[in-house]
């Protein structure tokens, strides 16, 4: 390498450089901005809007109105303001996206790391369980969990979370298997570090990048899954304004009041798109680092 080294301490840490690369990516930054707006909207909605009066109260007199200054996105068949319902519904998608993915990341990664590092019988058992879990369709699992625990936001989170566990386990295991063969792991062993110390200090930090990329991308599919399940009536029950549920209700009015399907659809699309852009940005920012 060159003689004069550019000395940047904090910036040159792994995360510092990742952040720098991410900022250069215009698409990723747009995604970040839009997603932040969605989050802000969701939080504001929870505090500002009143569930009983603005979100769920039936006002049949104002039913099926098109977009206007009073009702920005119009009203649905029960006279409920679609704009307010969309804002309020944001938090369901975000919660599921974040919580479900957190579940699958933590559970999946732990299993994958153990399988990858310890190998042998443990690896076999874990990966075979993952193999059994993978082909189960999300819908089927959601129905089962809903039947067992009742239909609710929590059940939805668990279902979507569990579905993604195998993919995290695989990604984590692959990452660990690469790290495991690196000489710095041997170096730590030769110094007397225990297996646990090695896993915590060396294996996990170095296996994070692919897991993180997986996580950011899974948020998008979690949101879609949640909406899909609600659309099918298995998710967050009516009258809660979950976007997928709203889509479902709007089906009967699709030719006359397209705003009832259009706006929830757009909301899902924008949110998922922004998350995907962030996910791509994270992956690209981490890529050159992975080659180091």
């Amino acid at each position: 390498m060159a003689g004069k080294m550019k000395l940047k301490n904090k910036d040159s840490s792994f995360w510092g450089e990742v952040a720098k690369e991410f900022k250069k990516n215009k698409g990723a930054m747009i995604g970040l901005v839009v997603f932040s707006l969605v989050i802000i909207a969701a939080i504001l909605a929870l505090f500002v809007l009143d569930y009983k009066t603005q979100i769920t109260k039936l006002k049949l007199a104002e039913a099926l109105q098109p977009a206007s200054w009073k009702h920005l996105f119009g009203t649905d068949q029960f006279g409920r303001d679609i704009f307010y319902r969309i804002l309020y519904g944001a938090h369901y998608s975000l919660l599921i996206g974040v919580c479900a993915v957190t579940i699958s990341t933590v559970v999946g990664s732990v299993l994958g790391i153990l399988a990858g590092y310890l190998g042998g019988i443990i690896e076999n058992i874990i990966m075979r369980i993952m193999d059994i879990l993978s082909p189960i369709p999300t819908v089927l699992l959601a129905i089962t969990i809903a039947a067992a625990f009742g239909q609710s936001l929590t059940s939805l989170m668990i279902a979507v979370g569990v579905i993604s566990v195998p993919s995290f386990a695989r990604v984590a295991r692959a990452a660990v298997m690469t790290v495991r063969d690196q000489e710095y792991i041997e170096a730590a062993k030769s110094q007397g570090a225990s297996e646990l110390q090695i896993i915590v200090s060396h294996v996990i930090p170095n296996s994070l990048p692919p897991i993180m990329v997986q996580a950011t991308m899974r948020v998008a599919s979690a949101i879609i899954s949640a909406s899909a399940l609600s659309f099918l009536g298995l998710g967050v029950p009516a009258p809660n304004p979950e976007w997928g549920g709203m889509l479902s209700e709007g089906r009967n009015f699709i030719s006359t009041n397209t705003n009832m399907t259009f706006f929830p659809g757009i909301a899902i699309m924008i949110t998922v798109l922004s998350v995907n852009l962030i996910g791509d940005g994270v992956r690209d920012a981490m890529d050159p680092r992975l080659k180091r």
Binding site: F14, Q182, E183, Y184, E186, A187, S190, H202, P205, N206, R292
Partner: peptide, 12 residues
């Protein structure tokens, strides 16, 4: 031990 590969013998 001193290892061969100055790239992979140090935790990046």
């Amino acid at each position: 031990m001193v290892f061969q590969d100055p790239f992979s013998s140090l935790d990046p």
